[in-house]
């Protein structure tokens, strides 16, 4: 059972990293800098990834406990609720007929629609993990290397997003609502 929780956390982290990497690919291939709502969805997604990271790190130190799973799942649920609210707002902003939406669609849906689906899935899987604690038995597994690698990957993704948003906003406090360029390089305020 403990191994199942660790594998679920591992899968959760790498699925989130894949989504965030796909967002970067869309950003650079289509030349579309992310809007403030897109950046906030990315932040919520990275905060949601901290939950499974917490579970993995706790499991790499000692036998994974129900308390650690509860904390990790709670973090994921809270961050996913925020992310779902942000992505649903962006969907509603573009819900009128003939509205082309923001950015390039990927497999028929815009990135914020995929984000809403991903956040809903994360809330569902975290709920299942919390219910599964009824049958949880602590057991030690050797996942130290995998856990560290996954957390370093999340940290690198956070750093990449920090660099991206600094390049996009320049030295301004707030991002423009409909960004078209990287203000740090264009020289405009």
């Amino acid at each position: 059972m403990t191994l199942l929780y660790l594998l679920a956390a591992l899968a959760n982290v790498w699925v989130l990293l894949a989504i965030l990497a796909a967002a970067f690919v869309a950003q650079f291939s289509a030349g579309e800098p992310p809007c403030p709502l897109c950046v906030m969805q990315r932040i919520a997604m990275m905060l949601a990834a901290l939950g499974p990271c917490h579970i993995l790190l706790a499991g790499s130190r000692a036998a994974l406990g129900a308390r650690d799973v509860g904390i990790g799942a709670g973090m994921t649920v809270l961050a996913s609720l925020l992310g779902a609210a942000i992505s649903i707002r962006q969907i509603l902003l573009h819900i009128l007929p003939n509205d082309p939406g923001f950015g390039m669609p990927v497999m028929g849906y815009h990135l914020y629609t995929w984000a809403a689906i991903a956040f809903a899935c994360m809330i569902g899987t975290s709920g299942l993990q919390l219910i599964g604690l009824a049958w949880f038995q602590p057991q030690a597994h050797r996942v130290s290397l995998l856990a560290r690698t996954s957390c370093i990957a999340v940290a690198l993704m956070l750093v990449a997003n920090i660099l991206s948003v600094v390049a996009e906003a320049g030295f301004a406090w707030k991002l423009p609502d409909n960004p078209t360029t990287y203000l740090l390089f264009s020289g405009r305020p």
Binding site: P36, M40, I43, M46, L57, A155, L158, I162, V166
Partner: peptide
């Protein structure tokens, strides 16, 4: 800058292990 600050706090949360 605000969003970069938010992500820095998230990075600190990850590094608080």
């Amino acid at each position: 800058m605000i969003y970069a600050g938010l992500m820095l706090v998230a990075l600190a949360a990850l590094a608080a292990d």
